[in-house]
């Protein structure tokens, strides 16, 4: 399960869905693997707008990977620069012309989001405390009968 997956998951207990505490789910006892995927800045920049940065910071901290993450979404800085008329650069712009974002920052983010997998561990709901097991990289979100 790649780390980016946590951006799209929440607690399966119905009454938790409306609670802000159910997102993101919290890693516990996680063991990680590194997967190699060729860096693709255009693709990464397309994904960044959909990421809740505060949630991602929480997840990275839980895995001891905070150093991989800038304090704010590079996408926000890029948009701000565009609005100020400094860049006017399309995010699908040719890579060689650059994106206005430090490539080292993007490469670290790529490693964090796309190349870091969680193999074993638990994902815990911050609202109800239910622990979802992750085994062989597959999270199990099926609930026991009393919680359905």
């Amino acid at each position: 399960m790649k780390l980016l997956t946590t951006s799209f998951l929440t607690c399966a207990v119905k009454t938790c869905r409306s609670s802000p505490a159910s997102f993101p789910l919290h890693f516990r006892d996680a063991s990680l693997e590194k997967i190699s995927i060729p860096f693709n800045s255009t693709f990464l920049l397309n994904i960044l707008p959909r990421i809740d940065w505060t949630a991602l910071q929480t997840t990275a901290a839980e895995l001891g990977l905070s150093a991989m993450l800038p304090s704010e979404n590079p996408q926000d800085a890029l948009l701000a620069a565009q609005e100020a008329g400094e860049g006017g650069m399309d995010i699908a712009e040719d890579e060689s012309k650059g994106t206005g974002i430090d490539e080292e920052v993007l490469k670290k983010l790529w490693t964090l989001l796309m190349e870091t997998g969680v193999v074993e561990g638990k994902l815990v709901c911050g609202n109800c405390g239910f622990e979802y097991p992750v085994k062989e990289g597959v999270g199990n979100f099926l609930l026991p009968p009393h919680l359905v």
Binding site: M1, T5, L9, A12, V138, G139, N140, L143
Partner: peptide
């Protein structure tokens, strides 16, 4: 990104 075991979209963020 991943496969997840679950009941339909119950664990997918709104």
């Amino acid at each position: 990104l991943a496969s997840a075991c679950g009941d339909l979209c119950s664990a997918i963020k709104p």
